[in-house]
């Protein structure tokens, strides 16, 4: 049903709508809605055990933050952030979509009362910031720019929101809460690198998908009603 035949499933007419920011009125088109929903599902798939194991010893690394970076990078700011909201709503409603963790349940409203809630809520602005920065990437050396976007959005924004909330919920001084998260930085560095490489790979494998401010391809499917 979801099987994709590599020879007949050619992505041709669709690329141009992916690059647009959505319909002219600022509303989300049907394709935008589909992309947002499907990337929310992709985030869930990246949390499945066994789908992914980053080789960092000692530190529990979830591939789901990688999904946050990819959603921002591939979908852009608006759709990326909405994909995060959609995913978090499904989690709040009780679907066990988060990667297993020793500090919180995998789904349900209790996720948002746990000590790491801020790190999850931060996914929304993180995807937005990453999307905005990737949209502004220069034509030359985009890989370095994508790395920078993922560091700013995927690490700085996430910690700037996650750590103070962790400190507040746990009744800890900010500096102590910050110290407790240093252990995760090596994993974050790996994820930033992986996300940038994957985004660049998607850019090559599916040109025109990653939103770009300056050179959007000309619409090719002018005959198709949108």
């Amino acid at each position: 049903m979801h099987d994709v035949h590599p020879l007949i499933d050619v992505p041709d007419t669709s690329a141009d709508t992916l690059t647009g920011m959505s319909t002219p009125s600022g509303r989300f088109s049907a394709r935008d809605l589909a992309l947002v929903a499907v990337f929310a599902a992709l985030l869930a798939a990246l949390g499945l055990p066994g789908s992914f194991a980053l080789p960092i010893s000692g530190v529990p690394v979830t591939a789901q933050t990688l999904g946050v970076m990819l959603a921002g990078s591939v979908l852009g700011a608006r759709r990326g952030a909405l994909a995060m909201v959609t995913f978090l709503v499904l989690v709040a409603a009780g679907l066990p979509l988060l990667a297993p963790s020793a500090v919180r349940p995998q789904g349900g409203l209790a996720v948002f009362t746990s000590i790491t809630a801020g790190f999850l809520i931060a996914w929304v602005p993180a995807a937005w910031v990453i999307g905005k920065l990737v949209e502004m990437r220069p034509a030359r050396f985009p890989l370095g720019w994508i790395v920078l976007a993922n560091i700013v959005g995927g690490v700085v924004v996430v910690y700037a929101i996650g750590v103070p909330i962790q400190a507040w919920v746990g009744g800890l001084p900010l500096t102590k809460a910050l110290l407790g998260t240093v252990a995760f930085l090596p994993g974050d560095a790996v994820k930033v690198a992986v996300s940038a490489v994957v985004t660049a790979g998607v850019l090559r494998g599916y040109p025109g998908i990653v939103p770009d401010r300056r050179h959007r391809p000309e619409p090719q499917d002018a005959g198709t009603a949108r």
Partner: peptide, 28 residues
């Protein structure tokens, strides 16, 4: 990379077909 790149591309293709199906049903 051999996992994430094809996964993202297939995911986007699936979204394309889903979007076309929605547009065909008049969502836009």
């Amino acid at each position: 990379r051999a996992f994430a790149v094809p996964l993202v591309i297939r995911t986007v293709r699936y979204a394309d077909r889903l979007g076309e199906a929605l547009a065909a049903r008049g969502v836009d």
